[in-house]
Amino acid sequence: MMRPISFSKPLILIALLFLLSGVGCTAQAAPASSPPTFDTGIDPNAWVQVPAGEFLMGLHNHEVMVAHDYEIMVTHVTNTQFAAFLNEALADGSIKQTEAGVVGYYPGDPFDGYKHEEKIEAGDWLLFPVNHPDARIRQENGAFVVLPGYENHPATMMTWFGARAYCEYYGWRLPTEEEWEKAARGEDGRAYPWGDEIDESNANYYKSHDPFERPNTPGDTTPVGFYNGKSYNGFQTMNSPSPYGLYDMAGNVWQWTSDDPPKTHLRYLKGGSFMDYAYNLRSWTRNSASPEYFSIAVGFRCAR
């Protein structure tokens, strides 16, 4: 008589343990609801000047010269500002609306025929997807409006073309990667805009426990300039501007920059977001995406 082999007992028990303990982990994402409303006191229409000069750039702190003075926005462009742009530019015909969303003309990128190079031809490109379920800006009765509570949060879900179109509409431009990084970390080679240490009171990053995080979501945006030393319903922030006085140069949402890297045309994104671990918020961290890409974790600010 063959004795039954007992391999199946541990096998079944281990499998069952996994299955049982995974049951509580499949809840659906919480429905979007109005976030808490806070006035940070930081003016999203403000600009600061960054003087020409050398600064330390990248992981290896290379000395890089920015040969010109420039101004850059103190905060991300907010939902209110971006909605106003959509309404104004659509009204005067600078941009137009199609089934795909709001589109605008872009003169195209030079194409080198490189392997994996994306072809960006002259023509109309998507700026902003209309009424996407993840967008904080909705179109109602022909006008773009901001979901209540998100007015002073950074605008998201615009493509690189959309960010560029916004800046150019007002006679400005997107910052280059060099300009962005200098504005973020100043000249002394610090890792974050405020210094070399980071904790939950400095910036909005993944699981940083800000008042806008909800269960079963990847987090959410915080109002621009949120980390300014104020306390919000008991959540104490530390005043965390960059050396030039910019806010949110680390965390909240990634920021489009203007560079067109040859042979790929994937645009650089800087600063990290509420969906990233803290180390991604280091000022030299480079992300990139197709200029057609849009995301709940991507926004921008302008330079001039």
Partner: peptide
């Protein structure tokens, strides 16, 4: 991205466990 968290939670849980 907006719907990923349940998947992130249970894949991370299974990985850690």
């Amino acid at each position: 991205e907006s719907q990923q968290q349940p998947l992130v939670n249970w894949t991370m849980w299974l990985t850690d466990a």
